[in-house]
Design a protein around this nucleic acid. Structure first.
Lengths: 215, 215
DNA sequence: CGGTCTTTCCCCCACATGGGGGAAGAAAAA
DNA sequence: TTTTTCTTCCCCCATGTGGGGGAAAGACCG
């Protein structure tokens, strides 16, 4: 008998995890050797589980996020291959995930056998991509890489909190004039005209989460 | 042998659906008699499947949303009980879902046996709520119910698209003065001070989705 | 029928915002 | 070393925005 592919599931949704485990274990060549609900947890057990493939949801509230988890797993072991399983086709996220060292990116609305094929491919060192994901990658690569500076990102985060220039200035301990400059530069770099659009941009590219914003 | 509980799964994520089906069917008293990826689809088949319980994800891109689907299912049949299965603890959404006629609200990060217990409870006409959900309900009931008028909601949607008052006026075929009035009333009703906060509100309460917004 | 709500539009005014420019020090890159 | 970038702050000014008021027409409800 051939050795089974050792799989670890990472998802903060217990229901989803249980469902995936049951589904994957219905195939004789797969073995779910562990599951965890957070990035920290999987890092603690990774050397004990020694999985061939980690299937991980990117969205995990609290603690380190999915991308960072991928990066750290890759530092610990080169054997384990990682597949991101997520709801988003967020172009920027796809790039970030692949740069972090994942070999697969499967959307949750994909057919289950796509995940299955991705796991088997990953276990053999291959990489399988869904057409929609490929499209996202291409679209992302063709987009000019606008790099906001540290300070600009901080201002953008503050913008997304619904703060005025004055409030941002107070929060960042600088003069309102400085904030104005930053906001202007942000809008110019992102080719936007209004701060509301900047807020939407910040949310879309995951610079800040809706959950982080209190009204 | 007792009759098995007829379950229908609704989720736009095929992988999640498959996982849930495999999991639920591992219990002898449950039978998954159908699954679909959209609200429209489940409505087309509901009278054919005649399920005891519908387990539905609220977030379904495109077409009618989860809440509307619940409402329509309840119009078609009074027998079928509906359980919302979602990632959000969004207070407003919980209320909306229950008002629409759902008897259960299970978060995806809940233990799988919570879903199981909810399904069994729903099949017997009971209603089972998780502590976090109950908390959300109580919190929501204690909040003043701010009702935006049709026109105000439309303006708020336009706001969330990052439009200026002038642009909104043109899109809605009214004068900028009218838009100003609406924006002012919206801010007053929601007790906000800036339009950026209104955008965040619109996104948080699901009036509009990030995916609907192009920059 | 009178009251409330909605929708439309107008007035005023203070302040915030966006776009243009410049300047100076620090830090990093060429 | 020179150059560039980042960060800080200032000027100006046109426009957008938020808060206050009012008014008129239609709908809906008791």
């Amino acid at each position: 008998m051939i050795e089974r592919i050792r799989v670890v599931l990472v998802d903060d949704h217990h229901v989803v995890r249980q469902g995936l485990r049951t589904y994957l274990e219905s195939f004789p060549d797969l073995e779910v050797v562990g599951e965890s609900s957070s990035g920290e947890e999987v890092l603690r057990h990774i050397e004990q589980w020694l999985p061939d493939v980690v299937v991980m949801d990117l969205l995990m509230p609290g603690g380190i996020d999915g991308v960072e988890t991928i990066r750290r797993i890759r530092q610990v072991t080169t054997h384990t291959q990682i597949i991101a399983l997520t709801s988003y086709t967020d172009d920027a996220r796809v790039i970030a995930v692949l740069r972090a060292g994942a070999v697969g990116y499967v959307r949750k609305d994909a057919a289950p056998d796509v995940l299955l094929a991705s796991i088997r491919a990953a276990a053999h060192g291959q990489s399988l991509f869904d057409p929609p994901v490929v499209g996202a990658v291409v679209q992302e690569l063709s987009r000019p890489d606008v790099a906001l500076s540290e300070r600009e990102q901080e201002v953008l985060r503050q913008l997304a909190l619904g703060h005025t220039n004055r409030e941002i200035a107070e929060a960042m301990m600088v003069s309102p004039e400085t904030v104005k400059t930053h906001v202007g530069n942000i809008l110019a770099k992102l080719q936007l005209t209004h701060r509301t659009q900047a807020v939407i941009y910040a949310l879309k590219c995951g610079l800040i989460s809706l959950d982080d914003i209190e009204l």
